[in-house]
């Protein structure tokens, strides 16, 4: 469970988030929406430990992110519009490098399995710079899931993708994003937070929609059906 309690974030005198309260249950797929500059990426950066809140507390399963950030990082995977991949390394070298960063055991087996799942097995020894944007984004998903994190953060993963590639990405996220345990007996739904400007696609991906406006939660469909009318109204 991810709990945001009275989270505020300011950059100098500019306040981006104002006392945001949000509880995300295990297994939720939350689509976070809102116009540019409303604080979506800032909110995800706070959860991903890339920045610290000006005020408030973020708890992951009861552990304060401010106290245990370095330990909790291994529970989080991030896909952003930037691929976070090295262009001059091959897909295999990129994933091997990140596997070492995340202490993944039996990394070669895990990498092969992930590359097969994202459809890049066979091109694993090609430089990332030779990949199309869609392929790079699929590799980026493999990178984010390498350590099988129970929390997946997707910051506009559809940026720069055409309709077909976006659909492929959605299918891949549905297929790979669901289970973080890897075996049926430990079955455990992955908690996912995604930002996107593609409202229809975003809503179709998630089971919960949150719209931010003026640095606050303007709409949250928690516990009910997502209302596209309300999403569009607050967007």
């Amino acid at each position: 469970m991810i709990e945001l309690r009275n989270i505020s974030k300011a950059f100098g005198s500019r306040i981006v988030l104002r006392k945001v309260n949000l509880t995300i249950n295990e297994g939720d797929f939350v689509t976070l929406m809102g116009p540019n500059g409303v604080g979506k990426t800032t909110l995800l950066h706070l959860i991903a430990t890339l920045s610290k809140p000006t005020a408030g507390t973020i708890l992951i399963n009861g552990y304060d992110l401010a106290d245990s950030a370095s330990q909790l990082r291994r529970f989080i995977g991030v896909v952003s519009h930037k691929t976070l991949l090295y262009d001059d390394l091959t897909a295999m070298q990129n994933l091997s490098f990140y596997a070492q960063m995340y202490d993944v055991v039996d990394s070669s087996i895990r990498i092969e399995s992930l590359l097969k799942q994202v459809g890049l097995w066979g091109r694993q020894n090609d430089l990332v710079r030779t990949y199309s944007r869609g392929m790079q984004q699929r590799l980026s998903i493999a990178r984010a899931l390498l350590h099988n994190p129970p929390i997946l953060i997707l910051d506009e993963p559809d940026t720069g993708l055409d309709q077909h590639a976006t659909q492929q990405l959605g299918d891949l996220l549905t297929e790979m994003g669901g289970d973080s345990a890897g075996s049926s007996e430990n079955s455990n739904k992955r908690t996912t937070m995604m930002t996107t400007h593609n409202l229809d696609w975003g809503v179709s991906m998630g089971n919960r929609a949150v719209v931010l406006a003026k640095g606050q939660v303007a709409y949250d469909s928690q516990g009910g059906e997502i209302s596209m009318t309300q999403v569009r109204e607050y967007y």
Binding site: E26, V104, V105, L146, N148, I151, S180, N188
Partner: peptide, 8 residues
């Protein structure tokens, strides 16, 4: 490590 990360 890869099989052990669960929030539950």
């Amino acid at each position: 490590m890869v099989q052990s990360l669960r929030l539950n």
